[in-house]
Nucleic acid binder design. Structure first.
Lengths: 168, 168
DNA sequence: CATGTTTTTCATATATTCTTGAAGTTTCAG
DNA sequence: CTGAAACTTCAAGAATATATGAAAAACATG
């Protein structure tokens, strides 16, 4: 398989993959492109290689920077800005987990906690069903919360190795 | 807070939550509704409570059944079908992990494995960058794969308790 | 097996999300 | 300052995803 072909396929697949995870296809593709590029790229490089508009590149790179997955690099003496992605996959995963936790799990747990004081008879079938489900989610969420926190702070090998050892 | 209000808010939020995870908003809402309903519901119940069309309900329930999150219940002597969701959140999470692994992680690893035989000099900067990234993903993916497999087969408390104990 | 009931399908309509590109802004060397 | 280069914004258009509802199919009952 030729390198150019492999690159293209990787970018395409990574994009498709992203769409299943609530990530915009193009953003995932930009990320993929930066992940496999030896050197940092300019907006124009990305525009050209993915055949997308300047505005689109700009928007998606900004988003990737927000997610902490891409860095803006300023080369002294050059006008253009360069961009490069974090290449260490463990760090990438950690960063994504951290952000999603902050953006989604935390707000969800906050919401769930509001449901503690429901008016009405706790013995009522419907009330009970609601509270049971909500409490189940709360418990699960709290545990996931702790687990992810720990994961985010753990060292790559230590964490996975220990985990696998214990689990086996 | 009134029960009806809380239910409504839960359904709405669960739906919004779903959209961040590549899940269609309505499907997540139907799931939420079934999660908090004491009894199983018919298609008409869901239509009415979420104000959505019959076709939409039918489609989303089928999808939820595909995911193994909802069951079709036939009551002897009744013509209508009833639907109920798995209420144990651990099982729900396990099931989702299992399905997403099958649908997404496995194909991704399969794709990545194809990139092993790239033509060209392994010393070339671009080739090396590509292979490094791809191999990093492969290693990470393989570990995630093992971890998720184990999680799916583990007992709820055993797993989380052990994990938390080890991690601390 | 004829009939009314329930479920499923799917072409079309609607809604949402993404992309473009030109105009506006910032930046900096001269 | 000035002007060119680079970056950012955003309204309008394009593409994608989702929802509707009527028609068809499946089903159960007498």
């Amino acid at each position: 398989m030729k390198l150019s072909e492999a690159k293209q396929q990787f970018i395409t697949s990574w994009g498709a993959f992203g769409t299943h995870w609530g990530i915009n296809r193009t953003m995932a593709q930009v990320h993929a492109l930066l992940l496999i590029s030896a050197d940092s790229l300019t907006q124009d490089d990305v525009m050209e290689q993915l055949s997308i508009s300047r505005g689109n590149v700009n928007m998606n790179i900004r988003e990737l920077i927000d997610w902490g997955l891409v860095n803006r690099i300023v080369v002294p003496g050059e006008r253009k800005e360069y961009f490069s992605a974090e290449k260490d996959i463990w760090k990438v995963a950690t960063q994504i987990v951290k952000e999603r936790k902050k953006r989604e799990l935390d707000p969800m747990l906050k919401l769930i906690n509001q449901f503690n004081n429901i008016d009405g008879d706790k013995k009522d079938k419907d009330t009970k069903a609601f509270l049971d489900t909500v409490n189940g989610i709360k418990k699960f969420g709290d545990q996931a919360d702790k687990m992810l926190d720990t994961m985010v702070h753990a060292e790559e090998n230590w964490f996975l190795n220990t985990l696998l050892k214990v689990i086996k």
